[in-house]
Each structure stands twice: as structure tokens, then as C-alpha cells.
Design a protein around this nucleic acid. Structure first.
Lengths: 105, 105
DNA sequence: AGACTAAGGAGAACTTAGTGA
DNA sequence: TCACTAAGTTCTCCTTAGTCT
């Protein structure tokens, strides 16, 4: 079968959790580093990962920055695309341009 | 200088507008095709493009689907990454795997 | 037709305070 | 320490009803 399409909401939760695990941060620590108040960081990040609440885009952007992933990665609904985004983001400018030339012949 | 970082909010607005223009749809028509009520479609899509309101992820996902772009594209804060996402999404499975092998040697 | 907006009610997120592993 | 949650408040979004080009 092709890519199963989970809801964008569910995808976001999973990517956030995966990226946080990769960064080795607790929910609270991630929130604090993203600029959330230390007393609410734990609850808010937890609600995001559980899919109970959705953060606004600016908060999501700060979380992504702390986790060192492009914001777009958190919304990648396809596994291949998710990997491609991570891989592409780690390239240097020249390498990115080379890949883009490949993709747009 | 490197990529200037507009706010995620502003990026979303621009990408949404660009994708809608590319699809040749009116704000109202886009909303209707994405499943919004015909009487609210115009107002809601307009508010999203102006950055006054943010759609929930499921609505954003339906908009992206109608516009034939990956949801992640609407959040790509870097021009090169945005192009890469669009290009990658248009590849066939085998081609995607080939690109991924390039990105992860 | 298409883009856009104010106002108020409807609904979601944020804060607080706390539990259990 | 870490993950997690209910309740009440706060704040944003959605709907309605329009204007303007």
C-alpha cells in the first residue's frame, strides 16, 4: 500500500515527540528553551504531544528551532518527505542548489 | 546574508496565497473545495491569507490537498526548502528513494 | 465576481494546581 | 524528575452581514 494518511494533527504530535526524543530533552525543558514560562512549559508541551491542543505557529516555530528541525518537518505527512526535509536542511548552500537542479531539470 | 526569517505566520500566508494563485482559484472556491460552508468560505480563507487568523491543522491539510501541495510546504520558511518540498513531492517512489540515498550516503 | 472586514457568539488554548510513576 | 491531567479563565476563531473595487 501507499502512504497511509494520518490526520495532520496526529502527524504533528508524532514528529514533535520524535524530534524531542532525538534532542534528548524533557517536555518541560523543551518548553522553557522555546520561551514558555517555566511553570506552564510542562503542561503545554504535553498537551501538544498528546494532540489535545495545537500551538500557534509562532510557538511551533520556536519549538522547531530548539529541536533543530525545519518547522515544515513537523507537518510532513509522508515518511519519505519527512526524511527528505531533514536531509535537505542539513546540506550546505551549494549542495542544496545541486539537489534542486536535480529536482528541476 | 542567509535566509531572512519571516514569522511562521507570515510564511504561511505567503505560501497559501502563492499556491492558490498557482491553482487559479478564488478564495471562495478554494474554501468550498476544501469543504468549508459556501457562505463562510470567502471570509475564512481571506482571514488565513491576511494572517488575521490561523486555521486548525485539519483545515490547513484540506486546503493543501486542494492546492496539490504537501501540507509541509505551507510552513517552509526557506525558499530553497520550499522548492525542494514541491519538487520532491512530484517524484515517483523510485525517484524519491534515489534522492534519499543521495541525501543520506 | 472577487477581495476584504467588524462584531459578537462559539469554541479552543492557557494557566493553575495537582496526581502518579 | 518526568509525564500527564481537570477545571476555570482567557483569548482566538467562526459566523453573520455587510462594504468596496
Amino acid at each position: 500500500m501507499g502512504a497511509k494518511s494520518a490526520s495532520p494533527q496526529a502527524v504533528f504530535c508524532e514528529r514533535l515527540r520524535a524530534a524531542r526524543a532525538a534532542a534528548g530533552l524533557s517536555q518541560r525543558e523543551l518548553g522553557i528553551r522555546a520561551g514558555l514560562d517555566e511553570f506552564v512549559a510542562s503542561a503545554r508541551v504535553n498537551r501538544y504531544e498528546q494532540g489535545v491542543h495545537q500551538p500557534d505557529l509562532d510557538t511551533a516555530g520556536r519549538l522547531a528551532k530548539v529541536l533543530d528541525v525545519p518547522l515544515a518537518y513537523l507537518f510532513a505527512d509522508d515518511e519519505r518527505l519527512a526524511k527528505a526535509i531533514l536531509g535537505f536542511a542539513r546540506l550546505h548552500r551549494g549542495e542544496k542548489d545541486a539537489v534542486l537542479r536535480d529536482l528541476f531539470p
